[in-house]
């Protein structure tokens, strides 16, 4: 299959119906929580590794691809933080910003001490990331796990690690809509980019179900409503090959990420989302005994 600079391989219906985790008996709500936390962890680690957002975004898509489908990785087998670390590792290796296993392991070790997979930007910046260090023995064993997980991801995806991103496409679309003469155009572009970043974390895994062009179109639609810039009163989204139904689905999907995040925060108030297989088993036992 030709890799296209405009299109991504999408998850099949069979892949969306079930996952390795569900086959292993992990309840869907826990899977959603853990995947969401893992995605946020990936974003946080990417920031600490000083990676450009486009590299982090590719790692996030690879992370999501690995966790769907009956042949994908199961959270009963892989620590979600390992999947996150290995996705970042393999994507940075292919990017112009390679990171050593040492950097990756240090950053994830530091993030695990924060006690939350969703540190605020302030927490990330004021932390003592430079001072955190793992011993040589720990480093060696984690490096082996990192390499092993990397290989498992590559094989589960059949080496389909290429990700086409919607960011530049979005800017091109805005230019095509002739928006940049407007004084608040940069607000619009910023909001659209923010929505693209939000969609990366979506529990609906929008990047696995929709092509970059449609994602960019939907974020422009949302951002224009929000910023109050009038777009043409025709069905302009069709110019960018997105039909009304797809646009509606994406708009609702993107808007729902915020409330999902709120629910998650309330649900895990004062507790840690299980980020390892052991923690997950403990959580499942707790749920069983509680009910």
């Amino acid at each position: 299959m030709q890799v296209s600079p405009l299109a991504n391989p999408l998850a099949t219906v069979a892949q969306l119906e079930t996952s390795g985790s569900q086959i292993d008996g992990i309840p869907r709500h826990l899977e959603n929580s853990i995947r969401f936390a893992g995605a946020q962890l990936t974003q946080a680690a990417g920031i600490l590794l000083r990676l450009p957002q486009e590299v982090i975004a590719q790692a996030l898509v690879v992370f999501m691809r690995f966790l769907v489908g009956p042949e994908g990785g199961s959270l009963a087998e892989f620590d979600v933080q390992q999947v996150s670390a290995a996705s970042l590792y393999t994507i940075t290796k292919l990017s112009p910003y390679p990171k050593s296993p040492r950097s990756i392991i240090n950053v994830f070790a530091y993030l695990s001490t924060l006690g939350t997979p969703t540190p605020t930007p302030d927490q990330l910046q004021q932390g003592k990331a430079e001072q955190y260090y793992v011993s040589e023995g720990t480093y060696q064993s984690r490096r082996l796990v990192l390499s092993d997980t990397e290989q498992r991801i590559l094989k589960a995806l059949g080496f389909n690690v290429h990700v086409s991103l919607p960011y530049t496409l979005g800017i091109t679309y805005l230019q095509a809509l002739d928006v940049f003469s407007h004084p608040r155009a940069s607000d619009l572009a910023k909001r659209a980019t923010a929505y693209l970043n939000t969609a990366l974390l979506s529990p609906q895994m929008l990047y696995l179900t929709h092509q970059p062009g449609s994602l960019a179109t939907a974020t422009i639609y949302l951002a224009a409503k929000e910023v109050g810039i009038k777009l043409p009163e025709v069905e302009w989204w069709e110019v960018f090959d997105t039909d009304r139904e797809e646009l509606g689905f994406l708009v609702v999907g993107m808007l729902s990420v915020g409330s999902f995040a709120e629910e998650e925060r309330a649900k895990w108030q004062g507790r840690k989302v299980p980020m390892t297989v052991d923690e997950l088993e403990a959580e499942m036992k707790r749920e069983d005994s509680g009910e």
């Binding site: 299959m1 405009l6 995806l157 090959d241």
Partner: peptide, 15 residues
């Protein structure tokens, strides 16, 4: 009905 271009990026599966 206008004809929209559909990109086919394929899918992925294990090796």
């Amino acid at each position: 009905e206008r004809k929209l271009l559909r990109f086919d990026g394929g899918s992925w599966g294990p090796c």
